[in-house]
Amino acid sequence: MTRDFSPAELRQAIRAGEFNGNTSGIAPGYVQCNLAILPADWADEFLRFCQANPKPCPLLAISPSPGDASLPLLGDIDVRTDVPSYRVFRDGRLSEEVADIATLWRDDLVAFALGCSFSFEEALLADSLEVRNVSEGVNVPMYRTNIDCTPAGRFQGKMVVSMRPFKAADAIRAVQICTRFPSVHGAPVHLGDPALIGIEKLETPDFGDAVTVAEDELPVFWACGVTPQVALEKARPPFAITHSPGHMLVTDLRNSRLAVM
């Protein structure tokens, strides 16, 4: 698929089974979202977890009501079919990855759309900064850390981060740019020595793909929307669904609308 497809065209291709890859660099200019879907009796606690942890869990939209698969604030979206790949969790354990969740949908499910770092990549590229996962055509590397999230009810756990390498001057510029986008993770949470946040090997990410890091580059780490998946593992709801890491919900909302000047 060409990367200049509109969000609607992309979602149609996903529904038709014609696209199932990661969405980094796809449909540039439009907001991409992490997805978490939970039963209604777990939804209030998850909402409080998002509110307590806005860096990894910047909430953009919620289902209008339990069982409603639409997200009208973000476009003509059906959360059951419009993500390239889903993860299904049962009792906190990943049980399967599937291409759509239409047959798994229930009338008590509530969907949460959370901001994604793929949205601010556009701003980095516009400032002539290389985004390594885009230039190498791979999924962004993501890592579990030792950074504690603020607990909310049954939800707790460590933060997951995404990483992009930059030379020092470019890393400073990346911080300045991403600070303008708090609803898609905002400024990085760490740069430099990965061991300081509990990451032992950059070459073996927990999610996504490894990218090249040159000797004169610093790894720069952003809070990541895969964090809710770690919280799900801890909370162990009987049933939950998320996006597969890097396989995002692409919306009709423009990235430019999220910028804080």
Rank of each mutant, 00 (worst) to 15 (best):
M1L: 08
T2N: 14
T2R: 15
S6Y: 03
A8N: 14
L10K: 05
A13W: 00
G17V: 11
F19V: 10
N20T: 13
S24C: 13
A27T: 14
P28K: 08
G29H: 09
N34H: 11
A36P: 06
A36R: 02
I37A: 07
F46W: 04
C50M: 11
A52T: 06
P54S: 04
P54R: 00
K55Q: 08
C57H: 01
L60E: 00
A61E: 07
I62P: 00
S63L: 03
P64F: 03
S65P: 06
D68N: 12
D68P: 02
S70P: 00
D76M: 11
I77W: 06
T81C: 11
P84W: 04
S85F: 10
Y86H: 03
R87C: 14
V88H: 01
V88L: 03
R90G: 10
S95P: 00
S95F: 09
V98T: 13
W105D: 09
D108G: 00
V110R: 02
V110Q: 02
A111I: 05
A113E: 08
G115Q: 03
C116T: 08
S117V: 09
F118A: 12
E122F: 13
L125W: 03
A126E: 13
A126K: 15
V131R: 01
E136L: 08
V138C: 12
N139D: 12
V140W: 03
M142N: 05
Y143H: 04
T145R: 01
T145Q: 01
N146L: 12
I147V: 15
P151L: 11
R154W: 10
R154Q: 12
Q156C: 04
Q156L: 03
K158A: 05
M159Q: 12
S162I: 06
R164L: 12
P165D: 12
R173M: 14
A174Y: 04
Q176I: 08
F181N: 08
P182S: 07
P182V: 09
S183F: 07
V184S: 05
V184R: 02
G186D: 02
A187L: 12
P188R: 15
D193P: 00
P194R: 06
P194L: 04
I197K: 07
G198Q: 01
I199G: 01
E200W: 12
K201E: 02
T204E: 15
T204R: 14
T204H: 15
D209N: 15
D209R: 09
A210E: 13
A214W: 14
A214M: 13
E215M: 15
D216P: 08
P219Q: 15
A223Q: 09
C224W: 01
G225L: 07
P228C: 04
E233M: 14
I241F: 08
P245C: 08
L249H: 10
D252P: 01
R254C: 09
N255P: 02
R257L: 09
L258V: 10
L258Q: 08
L258C: 05
L258P: 02
A259N: 09
M261F: 10
M261I: 10
